[in-house]
Design a protein around this nucleic acid. Structure first.
Length: 208
DNA sequence: TAGGCCATCTGGTCCT
DNA sequence: AGGACCAGATGGCCTA
């Protein structure tokens, strides 16, 4: 589920970077014909000795160097931009309900989980408002801000139909709400949803 | 070995 | 002109 990253952030210049950057080292960039668009025909560069051609060669080389430098800078910016994006994603993971250490969500899972989690929290507030007594809706002594406040025993008694409605492969918190609103269960809907999404391991590993 | 996930590079486009 | 953003391509790592 969570393949290890081949290049840690601290190894930015390792792996394929080393190869790619060398492609744009001044000597290489100027000597190749990879600079599409800005290329001077290769023929004018291959005339040996002539002064004019050597000037052209220098010009071409410096343009190639400039282009190479721009490309390297752009690569650096892009890399750090993606690292920022990943940091934001990690921050998002960190505020989502705890998962077992070895169950790090992928990027797409994180986004979907966050989306549904927000939806579930919103729905929780809406239903609480509708009932007009939040305290009676939540388990006694529970901390509404923490999804870990419900015991696994409560789960077992409160969610007989979960597997019939929600699987980890095809989860949708709205299904949970349909079940809960039908029998007015006292279990926090969000946690019901989390269990449905994460499975028994979530309960076993984090709720004790 | 195929497929999923990821990091990185790259060229194009838009914006300042 | 240069930076930010984006999407496609590529190749490595990991797991079933």
């Amino acid at each position: 589920m969570s393949p290890k990253a081949p290049c840690a952030p601290s190894d930015l210049r390792s792996c394929r970077d080393a190869v790619t950057l060398s492609r744009f080292s001044p000597t290489v960039a100027g000597d190749t014909s990879e600079d599409s668009g800005e290329n001077i025909p290769q023929k004018s560069l291959t005339v040996p000795g002539g002064e004019a051609s050597s000037i052209k060669n220098v010009k071409h080389k410096s343009r190639g160097e400039q282009r190479g430098r721009r490309r390297v800078k752009a690569n650096d910016r892009e890399r750090s931009r993606m690292h920022n994006l990943n940091s934001a994603l990690d921050a998002l993971r960190s505020i989502l309900p705890a998962l077992p250490e070895d169950a790090k969500l992928t990027k797409i899972e994180t986004l979907r989980f966050a989306h549904n989690y927000i939806w579930a929290l919103t729905e929780t507030l809406r239903m609480a408002d509708q009932h007009g007594h939040t305290a009676g809706y939540l388990p006694v002594g529970s901390d509404p801000s923490s999804p870990t406040s419900v015991s696994s025993a409560e789960w077992d008694s409160a969610s007989p139909a979960e597997s019939a409605y929600v699987t980890s492969a095809d989860f949708d918190p709205r299904h949970c709400y349909k079940i809960l609103s039908r029998d007015q269960s006292s279990v926090i809907p969000v946690t019901f949803y989390l269990k449905s999404f994460c499975g028994e391991n979530y309960v076993k590993n984090t709720w004790h």
